[in-house]
Design a protein around this nucleic acid. Structure first.
Lengths: 209, 209
DNA sequence: TATAAACTAAACTGTATAGTTCAGTTTTCC
DNA sequence: GGAAAACTGAACTATACAGTTTAGTTTATA
């Protein structure tokens, strides 16, 4: 039952036993709802429909379970998947489609909000988990958009990577303020206005071929 | 000793007794370092150099202390202060200066990182605190930049508020990824590149007067 | 100086927690 | 069928916590 020491994180994708999956599912429910410190192992076991001894036979301790869970979620559940069809069409269409898809994913999924909150809130106590989040969630998104900019010089973007970060940062921050921080009531705005303004900024100096 | 019920938040700025200030200082240290759930009232009292009974004579309970603390910090310590001199000069200079100041404030202050982590991490358990954060930290920044855009039509920005959110979101998200999520090692980038790319996007279609 | 208010230290209550142990049950697999 | 492994439920240890109480001390004030 290859366990890991508390401080190292399993980045492999060893197939897991059914019980281990069950436990992770219960752990996800509890940790996402209550955060790390306020989640008890008894509640995790109950949520997983499993005895507490079984939890401790699959995971070294609370920290080990938490790190296994978050690393796994970052790699599986929240890693960005890009459909090839996303790239079909002219840049104006494609960029707007990408922005719209990203915005809806990042705005409309409460589980994603809870996950981001969890990772951000624990980023100082679990810096490795924060880095895994960056590696598997943030970086692929930036790289993807950055490559698209690079592959389309007619967009006339001098620094594709920085520009990719700006576009993604604007979308993510909008979702954070509106949804995660409940800012929608205080400073309401349609997400389309962000997308329109982004398109205006990025597209207006392109070279018409 | 006008206390508040646990669920309502004091948005007034009643002058506080010296002991209450002491307690808030200790509470800030502990809550910023360990988060809400993992902070104990004994440690808060010890950090404040005060007996636990005194803590409970000034604040109703842990939740009341926490909400008083976070609301206060959002209004005092992390509300954005704008110097009038920030606005002197032509738009190219002013915008770059504003971006640079914002970036340094948001990137280089570990206490600000801890505060944002705390508010984000507890935003579901304390939605009113998240809204106070938006009201006193996010909104003033967006409004300020938005007004600057509106006051300078030569910049040719069709949607000032959305554009202000994009600029601020890009800067804040950059700081979040690089510093708060420890992404600097995984996807390093100089903050100047973000600022340059932002300037390029915002300024390139301005009307030269 | 007298009096009230604020404060302290410490003990105390009741509950919750991480992690372990163990006797007994179920599952797996040869 | 039978042995080994996995699992269960429940009790158990030791610790920590929120919040209260008490008895005594300091501080301000009039």
């Amino acid at each position: 039952m290859g366990r890991k020491s508390a401080s190292e994180i399993d980045e492999n994708q060893e197939p897991m036993s059914e019980k281990a999956e069950q436990i992770l599912k219960g752990a996800m429910q509890e940790f996402l709802a209550h955060g790390y410190a306020a989640t008890s192992m008894d509640r995790v076991a109950a949520a997983a429909g499993v005895s507490k001894a079984t939890v401790y036979s699959h995971f070294q301790d609370k920290e080990g379970l938490f790190t296994a869970l978050v690393a796994r979620m970052a790699q599986q559940k929240f890693s960005v998947i890009y459909a090839p069809t996303l790239l079909e069409g002219d840049p104006v269409t494609v960029l707007r489609r990408m922005a719209t898809v990203a915005m809806s994913r990042v705005c409309c999924d409460p589980e994603q909000h809870a996950f981001v909150r969890l990772v951000m809130g624990e980023a100082d106590r679990f810096p490795q988990l924060a880095q895994i989040f960056v590696q598997y969630v943030t970086k692929p998104g930036v790289d993807f958009l950055s490559h698209y900019f690079t592959d389309h010089p007619e967009l006339n973007i001098p620094d594709p990577e920085a520009t990719a970060r700006i576009v993604i940062g604007a979308i993510v921050h909008f979702a954070q303020v509106q949804e995660m921080l409940h800012g929608a009531e205080i400073m309401p705005m349609e997400s389309d206005r962000i997308i329109d303004a982004l398109m205006h900024l990025v597209m207006r100096e392109r070279v018409i071929s």
